[in-house]
Design a protein around this nucleic acid. Sequence first.
RNA 1: GCCCCCGUAGCUCAGUGGUAGAGCGCCAUCUUGGUAAGAUGGAGGUCACGGGAUCGAUUCCCGUCGGGGGCUCCA
Length: 673
Amino acid sequence: MSLEEFTSTVDGSEVTVAQGTTAAQLYVERREVVVARINGELKDLATVIQPGDSVEAVTIDSPDGLNVLRHSAAHVMAQAVQQLRPDAKLGIGPYIKDGFYFDFDVEEPFTPEDLKQLEKMMLKIVNQNQKFERQVVDPDEARQAMADEPYKLELIELAGGPGSGADAAEGASVEVGAGEMTLYNNVDRKSEDVVWKDLCRGPHLPNTKLISNAFALTRSAAAYWRGNENNKQLQRIYGTAWPTKEDLKAYQERLAEAERRDHRKLGAELDLFSFPDELGSGLPVFHPKGGIIKREMEDYVRTRHIEEGFQYVGTPHISKDGLFHTSGHLPYYADTMFPALKVDEEYDDEGNVTKPGQEYRLKAMNCPMHNLIFRSRGRSYRELPMRLFEFGHVYRYEKSGVVHGLTRVRGFAQDDSHSYVTKEQAPAEVKHLLDFILGLLKDFGMDDFYLELSTRDPESDKFIGTDEQWEEATKVLETVAQETGLELVPDPGGAAYYGPKISVQARDAIGRTWQMSTVQYDFNQPARFGLEYQAADGTRQEPVMIHAAKFGSIERFLGVLVEHYAGAFPAWLAPEQVRLVPVAEAFNDYMADVADQLRRRGVRVQLDDSSDRFPKKIRNASKDKVPYTLIAGGEDVEAGAVSFRFRDGSTDNGIPVAEAVERIVGAIERREN
RNA sequence: GCCCCCGUAGCUCAGUGGUAGAGCGCCAUCUUGGUAAGAUGGAGGUCACGGGAUCGAUUCCCGUCGGGGGCUCCA
């Protein structure tokens, strides 16, 4: 080993390298290596290896490699945008799941035609095989280089100030590194000119060629600068990028499949529910078939609640608004409650008010009313835990832009409960509730979810109660949540004003997550309502209340279920459980008898005695996603049997009718599928 | 709430400055024998609603309502 050589660790092996060797030279044979992880940090391939460095290859199809690919694609897009719209000012442009975006301040929003044109311009840049070149700069040089980019200048100032740039804005850490400041220059191969540059921490692909033609611009939308609605709206373009054209096609196929599962689409196709314009935005109606699913859900959940020690109660949809001042909701959440209804106001002939009216509010939550039930008479510690439960219909004035199918509506039913417990009973009750919830989710076949722990933001004045109260409540929830062994994601600042929350977050077909079940620890409302019970020692004590919604919202849960099963519900939930298809008209009567036998056992069954021919009837049963299709022709009739056809197309022929009935009834009772 | 896009038959969608079309579905008749589309015929639309410019609007402009994609929000 000469003086100009030293050893480094390359992909786990000791290797002798010459001074000045770059990572690119180490991987010159491996075109799929796009960046290197040097001593644990992602670096450009142009990075020079130092003595003792530990170097690992990062390939374009690895998670880190894909992120770099997408980040570089974002740069290429931004370059194209500034060619198309020279006045476009750059916002931030990070990679995201499956793709990237870049924000621009432009005079005119982008049109779909613009996106097509930008894709073409990007392809040109890709084919020019520009080099990505890293340049370390000091803040003054950065300011000079970004003199025409006001948003970048803002980021430079934020990075220069106290703390790092990492927290300046969502994605801003991609722009401005915590340590040294860097520019990335796009360099033309032939002229060696810098054709475009951006303030960016990197790393990037060595060249644009690696992006190939496996990218697409997917949509444009507005987004507030630095995620704050008081800031200017920039125009954001989303794109996706993959190592190969095949990967891109597979991704697009996944999106198309997700679209087919969309509950809004399936809800119409399967005749489950609709959103009549006449009712207003976010107000669904359930059709007979959707009504069956909803009722099965409710029946099951009601039964389970009673088994778990809950008492079924009932409360009205509206109340005088004073109640929500007492609870603390109106001062904090007036914006998300429907405006007041004024009643009983009286006037004289001149129109002057002679008797002031009374304001009523549609309720946005059930807890205040349950509190009144608790308070309706004196309570003993012997009654605790006291668990009140109902399907409470609540109405929330959701902003027009956020209403979405069944998953974000303005009127919905919560399977809402409030457990009133002593402070000492609280941990066990939280555990009881969480176990109950996880059991229910399992019964409904839900498995794609994680837990979230929402806590208060100590900086915000939205949250009421003392530090000690918050600490204790949070500790209880956190401990119980951790004991489940499920993934637990922190959600700082996401708590309700009255206490912290554990929630179950489920993913829909399009990958959006929705809050389903919640367990909330509340030490505020009992005080506000003056709730108390008499303890064993004769003193009056304040209970703790624990809010819990198991489905969350029946509507949202149903929507997520539709997508989870892609409309092919397990038999116990399916609106139509059995479709009977005679091979020919001559067997209609035989099938009618089978239908009777099933119906007598409580099975939801439909005989297809239409004038369609046999194959069409099979097709219809299949399209309707009925769990069991029973078929009978001459052979079956002679044997006193029927033939099964399942949703996957498989069959089981010649099953005696009595056995077929038992099989179906058994599967429904066991909630199979 | 903000930005952009969209609204034609029950559904999916063509189309046009001179009051409209397809496929599926629906209805009728003829059909009906083994696992995803039998044939023929028919009905069905104030082209979301309101206003404006035009000789004339479903088409162009404005507003309202509703939907979609994001952003912000989500007790």
